[in-house]
Nucleic acid binder design. Structure first.
Length: 122
DNA sequence: GTATTGACTTCAT
DNA sequence: AATGAAGCCAATA
């Protein structure tokens, strides 16, 4: 028995869920940290999603640049090197970034029911 | 053990 | 539109 019942999902598995979820964001679309957390089965852990992405090794090759804040702003400060890099990656995919933010109404990923089912962990 | 921090979100100014 | 407070949760000091 696990006397420390705090973690319902081991962090190791939770990270895997986050990576898997981010990888299914289509090219040309974006998602918010909170959206990724929810789809990964980790509601309320938007901040943790950002942490996990930041600490993910470069070899992961996950589309981290498609994840932004809920209002469409990039998580990095305007003018920062990371912001510029993320903007470039998004523009390559056809996502329009203006003043460090994206029009969520135009580019936010809306998973189909099939994709929602696929995101479930059986 | 407590305090602080951060690739967050929401609500209220 | 911009800013601040409060809530949030895991990592770090």
């Amino acid at each position: 028995m696990r006397s420390r019942g705090k973690a319902q999902v081991p962090d190791k598995d939770a990270r895997h869920q986050i990576w898997r979820t981010v990888k299914m964001i289509p090219i040309g679309c974006v998602a918010s940290y909170g959206q990724v957390a929810d789809l990964a089965g980790l509601p309320g852990r938007a901040r943790w999603v950002g942490r996990v992405l930041g600490q993910s090794p470069a070899s992961m090759t996950i589309p981290w640049h498609r994840v932004l804040r809920s209002d469409g702003r990039l998580a990095f400060s305007p003018g920062s090197a990371e912001s510029a890099k993320q903007t470039g990656l998004l523009q390559e995919e056809g996502v329009v970034v203006f003043n460090n933010k994206v029009r969520m109404a135009d580019f936010q990923w809306r998973p189909s029911p099939a994709e929602l089912l696929f995101s479930l962990d059986f």
